[in-house]
């Protein structure tokens, strides 16, 4: 019976490792924080804003005006960013979608707090940021994504195989 002397090469650092080592993994892309750190931080920030407005309302819990909008904005950004962490490669689509959602948020905010100068669609001040966001952060990225000069995956593979075959034949 042959005795197996196992040589294990770490696939991460590519060095030979001792088989008795239980694990030899290089942690990459790992978070330095527990998952609950950010939601708790944001929760505390939300409470802070609500308390600040509570102070200006002389302790009245029924007449919140601006702080719920701030809190809603914070959580929209958080959930958007959280979603993008899970779908980085499809972010061209989801980031655009999130910005569209952000435009809707701005429009609603505008309806609640309009300025004196009306523009179009019943909007006032929010018309300008919405147009900028829609063009620069939604339409441009989507257009650029579809306009990429990229070879199809199959074509790439065929090309590499052909080149390799020529190289081997030439050798």
């Amino acid at each position: 019976m042959a005795v197996i002397h196992e040589v294990i090469i770490c696939p991460n650092c590519e060095k030979e490792i001792n088989p008795s080592e239980a694990t030899h993994v290089v942690k990459r892309g790992q978070s330095r924080f527990n998952w609950w750190v950010t939601p708790v931080n944001l929760f505390l920030i939300s409470i802070m804003f609500l308390l600040l407005e509570l102070g200006t309302n002389s302790g009245s819990f029924t007449s919140f005006k601006w702080s719920p909008w701030v809190v809603a904005g914070i959580w929209i950004i958080y959930f958007g960013a959280l979603f993008l962490t899970l779908r980085i490669e499809d972010s061209w689509f989801y980031a655009s979608l999130i910005f569209v959602g952000f435009c809707v948020y701005l429009a609603l905010l505008d309806l609640e707090f309009p300025s004196k100068q009306p523009t179009v669609l019943g909007l006032t001040w929010s018309f300008y940021p919405i147009v900028i966001i829609l063009f620069l952060l939604v339409l441009l990225p989507v257009n650029s994504y579809f306009g990429q000069k990229r070879k199809q995956s199959v074509e790439l593979l065929k090309e590499v195989i052909k080149l390799e075959e020529e190289h081997v034949k030439g050798a």
């Binding site: 040589v7 090469i9 770490c10 696939p11 993994v25 978070s31």
Partner: peptide, 20 residues
């Protein structure tokens, strides 16, 4: 903590190659 992080490329110990 909120900004997108890369996915995990760490190879699991039980998935390592063998060269004998």
């Amino acid at each position: 903590s909120i900004w997108p992080k890369g996915y995990d490329r760490t190879v699991k110990p039980e998935a390592e190659e063998f060269y004998w």
